[in-house]
Design a binder for these strands. Sequence first.
DNA 1: TATATCCGGGTTTTT
DNA 2: CCCGGATATA
Length: 646
Amino acid sequence: MIFIKDNLIKNMNEKQIEAIISIEKNLLILAGAGSGKTKVLVNRINWLILKLGVSPKSIMAVTFSNKAAKEIYNRIKKTIKFNINDIWIGTFHSLAYKMLYLHYNKLKKHIQIIGKEEQINLIKNITIKLNIDIKKFPPIKTMYYINNKKNYGLHPKDCVKNIEKDKLFSIYKLYQKKCTKYGYFDFGEILISVNNLLIKNPEILNKYIKQFKHILIDEFQDINNIQYKWIKQIKNKNNKIMIIGDDDQCIYGWRGAETTLIEKIKSDYSNIKIIYLEQNYRSTNNIILAANHLINNNNNRIKKKLWTKKKPGELISLYSAINEEDEAKYITNCIKILKYNGFSLNKCAILYRKNIQSIVIEKILSKNNINYEFLNTIKFYNRKEIKDIISYLRIILNKNDDIAFLRIINTPKRGIGINTINKINEISKKKKKSLWRSLKIILNKNILKKKQNLILKKFIVLINEIKKNIKNLKLYEQVNYVINKTKLLLMYKKKDDFKIRIENLKELIKLTKKFYIKNINKFEILKLFLSHIILNNNNENNNFEKKDSVKLMSIHLSKGLEFDQVFIIGMEEGIFPHYYTLNNKSLEEERRLAYVGITRAKKKLTLTYTKERYLYGIKKKTKPSRFIKEIPLKYIEIINNYKVLL
DNA sequence: TATATCCGGGTTTTT
DNA sequence: CCCGGATATA
């Protein structure tokens, strides 16, 4: 039936080819782990452009992570040599921001994106301001409450009033009021605003509906309500959508992801064709079968069954350790043997539920001179020195940015303490003015001590001077100027982590040099740059493949990756599944996480658990994870002592 | 205002 | 056990 021979569909199975070339219907691709879904997505875009003559600018490809977006972009670039930047490829948030920015800029409205830490900070301030006990209402919990509302597109005014008269709601109300007033956009707000933009401006909506002939969405299982609404707006009967997802790999439920939206799509979009990609190209059969058995214990899932043409391969090793040290030694030993046999360390990964579990492993690995790389998510933007510089830049763009103001008012230390700040805060509260304006008021009234008065006047002069002097500078020069002028370097010099900070600042300068947009003024570029680094807040692990080292990471972080040798440690009740999730509905999510972990392995999987473990300094007896028991014994090779398990 | 000490709480985290 | 935040002290 398919007679076209082409590189884009070479070596692909029939289902994959169908997913790449069919355009009569909307497509829902239910793609299991390792079934080649990224390849399908990339080749479909290539196909649309090269074979069907679809213009790059009428394609929108949405992903959840910048990493994925970049990967897709780079892979397309290999095949398509023209106008590739016209394709709208990006995360939900970055594409939504792009739409918003184009519009807001015309209205001269400023968008200040705020990250998690700033959100928490703001919530904390508000909680205190409302005389609500911070211990009873910890800001982080409040943030989850707010974000959850926003995941459903609900502003305070959209919440049901009689139910929502509690303290959390009152914090949310004030929080949202502040955000609106000062132009703060948390991540949820970007999506809500873009939705509202399209609702209120049919002409803009129509423009995008006409523009995007093809919408492709990856990792659809992780979509939340407001993201769904946005897509639904842009999609109408004339454009085609392709959705790829695997509900078994939904591990971000706590962030508003709803697997049920996959079901919803079937009823919302008629004329949708479902394609199952179930052939796995990654793992040996034992691993696949074990994974299938495990995930089958979940009740809420779309039934599918991974299969492979590969041989059974090695059995899954199960090691029962005395304690975490023994566990680490066993794994280190395994890796030593692999290394001795010429195995590249790059092909080994040690996965765990909690980052803290890596400590013992790291200790033993380095004792044995085995290179390893610990991957975590300490984000570039979250680094102190980056935030400090950025805060100065933010104040320069918008003096009423209270969050930035609070960050830099005494950084570097200039002798402004909590008392002075409180006084400024009081005026701000009374006059309903920003901290910057309140500061100016306070200086005119001689409320403060002479010393503080002088310091603060100097502060104002400093900010004004920076603003004046960087006006016509290039982006990297602007950043450089701020670094020097603010004397932040001197402050870092006193600490022993000075070297790392300098490295990070260099990295920042490097980023600014790469960031270039034609035909807009210098402050506008700065503005876009600041948004860019929050929205692309990821470590660039560009030497990930190059360095020969064992990779250590959480299972969450391993999603999308694959390794010949995978070790999953801490397979114990209370660790994995995590203590918090025992006996509630997120247990199924834990199981999906286990499924993700297992399916990372190409050739060999090793599971370990310990009989006792230090938890917060106390030695505790532990029991093997239920997930081990959910794998039939015939796929397992017991290294030692399985009795405990039975 | 800046530093010293105590206390409690402690998953995962694509944006 | 180890970190960050809140309180006590120089």
